[in-house]
Amino acid sequence: MKGSLLALVIGAAAIAVLGTSYALSQFAFVATWAIAGLGLSLILGQAGQISLGHGAFLGIGAYVEGALAVAGWPAWASFPLAVLVAAAAGWVAALPGRRLGGMAFAMSTLAIALLVEEALVRWEGLTRGAAGLAIPPLQLFGQTVSGPLGQFVVSALLLLVAYGCCRRWVGSRLGRAWRAVRDDEVAAAAVGIDCGALRSLAFVLGAGMAGLAGALYAHWLAYLSPEQFGLQLSFELLMLVFIGGVGRLSGAIWGAAVFVALPQLIALATDLLPARWAAASGTETMAFGVLIVLIILLRPGGIAGGRRQGRREAG
């Protein structure tokens, strides 16, 4: 409750200070990134799997939606398909998890990220390869969603739906089983939990959410190129979840806010510096790094996780 109020205050202040369209544009990207973060939160925070290739699922969702939108498919058909294809890719990515564990499995997800990026370059018929793919604006109920307000409303609504689903899953028997597998796999198996199937399910759901975020991203950016979905994106998403708070779903939203909005706030603050300092290359990157380190030092459990390394829990 306190967190929601704080978020509301921050949101209102952002609109007042930044101006409506700039602030709403930021919120749209925060909500989109939060959806992807929620997916990774299920995989990492609940099922205890490290995924180093989450950006690849986002890329798959983006390209499926992009290609279908270019082909003239309506959003009500293309969005679910983008989610389904990304989820299917998640299932494939989870297959090595039946035999591999820990870092060995994490490495296999890294391979998936590399494979997907390469496939996006090579599959020119669909992706236009390295030349990139221009995406038309989102059409919803006969309306074109191209302005920041529309983008924000659509992203926020889908984030609400995604958050609601995740809350339901982690609060249910499924969530308890995931946490049992995460905390002690042997004990979980001893009480009859199918650990492999549960981990796969976390991957399928998490990848599906990344696919949904990717589908939104494709329209908000209007141009896709394979390099946008490289390893850097996967690591960015991983950091987003850790910074936000790995064990809490709300951490994904906080993490997204930090990753999307903080660099913008730093850019605004840099404008106030003397020209010589502001012009120095890397000032903003350095400030971002320092702030991230401070967040980690002050809140090791993530922004939503409290001052001390908190218990990993749902909610």
């Binding site: 930044l18 930021q26 990207f29 908000w220 950016l221 660099p263 913008q264 903003e284 990157t285």
Partner: peptide, 23 residues
């Protein structure tokens, strides 16, 4: 001239564009 750093990230660049247009 207002200079914005995109870090070669199109997402950051889109936000910077909105800032430059609006603010």
């Amino acid at each position: 001239i207002a200079v914005e750093d995109s870090g070669y990230d199109p997402k950051k660049a889109v936000l910077a564009t909105r800032k430059l247009l609006q603010r």
